[in-house]
Design a protein around this nucleic acid. Sequence first.
DNA 1: ATGGCTCACATCGTGAGA
Length: 260
Amino acid sequence: MIVSSWNVNSLNVRLPQVLDWLAAQQQAAAPVDVLCLQELKLTDDKFPREAFEQLGWHMAYTGQKTYNGVAILSRQPLTDVVLNNPRYEDEQRRLVAATIDGVRIINGYFPNGQEVGSDKYAYKLAWLDALIELVREDLSRFPKLVLCGDFNIAPADADVHDPALWGEGLHVSPQERARFFRFIDELGLKDTFRLFEQAPKLFSWWDYRNLGFQKNQGLRIDHILASPALATSCKRSWIDRQPRKNKQPSDHAPVLAEFA
DNA sequence: ATGGCTCACATCGTGAGA
């Protein structure tokens, strides 16, 4: 099973690119089985369900106008679909979970946080705390579990193009990183990307401004975490930079992980 | 160097993203 995650920054704008990307993956030796999307920026009635259904995809999604919105597309049917975190009252549509072929998939668009110390930052931390409890609970029911999406956290300095520049700011602050590592150290999840030898300076997001992509001034903030029972079968984990080279690209690139 | 770009909006400047 290949699981992928892509913050598309408006599914309205990016739908043709998503369809192109999926078609290209179909040509690969091991095609994508699951695609988790974030930042749909559209309400459920505007979700392009038919476009995906025609291609045989099953899906679950929850969206809102202008902001947020998440979806899971799957070749196999989804069961036990949960929209949002039942443990956290939230107007913002940031979480969708489903079980696919015995694997629990939790897809999140984690809050940005805007600025360390702001109200939105406090919301980010509280949202993370509630997610940790949700994942803890799900792990007891689903030994094979994936937590993926746009975490808006760069876990380590290796995930930052210029650690000195970013300092302890948003996406790299100790409080955000501490929560990321609770998934790892406390719940036992593995950052699939770091299970393998990787080249330096590989990122999943680059600022639109100032030629960020061309200069590779990016962050690795999109992640695929896997439970211990699943991580043992992880064969590779990588980032597909290709779509970031598209005309009118998302500022994020898809991340992928293959499980035997 | 905090801007620069891109998106959405009961748009034509503003807020948000990261």
